[in-house]
Design a protein around this nucleic acid. Structure first.
Lengths: 234, 234
DNA sequence: GTAGCAGCGCGACTTTAGTCACTGCGTGGT
DNA sequence: ACCACGCAGTGACTAAAGTCGCGCTGCTAC
């Protein structure tokens, strides 16, 4: 949690928000930011707390989520280096709408609401950049709403399997193989459901001959058939 | 769809986005806007279309929604005079994430993407205002996600009944009375479900003695009991 | 009028989601 | 070696959501 850092200006530049600022402008901004370190599992802030400023992930990974009274969790986003978090409340002043926790040990650059506000007034293009970032977030939220209200858990699961397969699947003679990046519990949180349903639906896909499950290894035997399940409704 | 209008500057001011501009600045902005008229039921634009600019409702009411292939609808927001619509894609350039339709005959002030962009660069405070508006929208979307993934339709329905009762209910000897503002179908769309479930759940609440239903007239006989259903989970 | 039509009620049913309780497996710690 | 613990599979069940089909009403247009 040191106030300055030699690489801070450089890492700010990588965020995309500040990519077209001059080095001296970056220095000025860097001088106003504070680094914070969080270890895996530590909360950056909780839903409902008053919002104090903008957080930018410079290293690590964080998860934005909501929790229900009954203990269920709905993940809204997982952000890696270069992404900002909680851009919004910075400007409307309200409380945080969701909680954020560090998934890995993370380093966060923090800029106070006031400072960032002032900075935007001097650099309107930064404000527009923020707007673009927020636009992307809004788009993702609308996507989540669409999924939640139009699709079954089965379809959501298939969609994430297909996504992972495309991103990091290995082609093998029997099909495309990959490892699930998260526990069933975590996948359930992202899809807005419970652990058991992930387990059951994976087994069901296996029974249908579309995939083969071995612990966290997944072998997609019939990619076409799998993808076809996505077209069905929505 | 006349390009200018004597009251345009005044109506822009009412939006909140431009409330602290000088009259001459407003005139400048007004000169760049176009009025469009839409009759009830007419589409302003559809999901997926490229986004051309910012829309501001100056009269009437519009509904922002997503549609599924199977014909289901999920309402994201209903906006009245003074609200802007589709603020976001203006800045990230992507396609509209949802469709917007006029619920009543409406008058829309339209500012092209390019013009508004330029305007924001000259008036950073306007950009910040837009950010605040977008913040509010983001908050509402998160609220919808929370409802969809944590609550039952019954609870969502009760929540809207309570909301309407508080907003426009009449106190009577037997309880609080009001009229449903929309058809069951429309309520279903807003809650992300189908008509029958609205019907059934209303009947169920009646059977439980909490409310009395007579066509669109609702009499809340036990407001305490009704509200209590909201605490249960979430 | 009456024909058409949107809105609503409702029964009967299927599917999906969620809950509970329990078993089993591997890994890391002491 | 053994225990604890996180994670995964599973059976049995309940409840919620959604589907289909039909019948009823009340309104409006011709």
């Amino acid at each position: 949690m040191r106030p300055e850092h030699p690489n801070l200006a450089a890492s700010l530049q990588k965020t995309g928000l500040f990519s077209n600022l001059t080095p001296s402008e970056l220095q000025l901004l860097a001088a106003r930011t504070v680094r914070k370190l969080f270890s895996a599992g530590e909360l950056l802030f909780s839903e409902g707390e008053p919002c104090t400023g903008l957080h930018i992930v410079s290293r690590g990974k964080v998860r934005i989520f909501k929790t229900s009274i009954s203990g269920r969790e709905q993940v809204l986003a997982v952000e890696g280096p270069g992404s900002s978090v909680a851009e919004l409340p910075v400007f409307d002043g309200g409380p945080y709408p969701a909680s954020v926790v560090a998934v890995e040990d993370s380093e966060i650059a923090f800029i106070s609401r006031r400072d960032f506000h002032a900075y935007c007034m001097e650099h309107p293009d930064v404000a527009l950049k923020v707007l673009a970032v927020v636009g992307a977030r809004l788009r993702r939220l609308v996507g989540i709403i669409e999924e939640l209200s139009f699709t079954t858990i089965r379809q959501r699961l298939v969609a994430t399997l297909v996504k992972i397969a495309q991103a990091q699947g290995q082609q093998t003679p029997q099909g495309i193989e990959f490892r699930l990046p998260d526990s069933h519990q975590e996948i359930a949180n992202q899809l807005g459901t419970v652990r058991e349903l992930i387990s059951r639906n994976l087994m069901r896909l296996q029974a249908e001959g579309l995939i083969e499950v071995d612990a966290r290894r997944i072998l997609v035997k019939d990619m076409t058939g799998l993808s076809a399940l996505l077209e069905a409704s929505s």
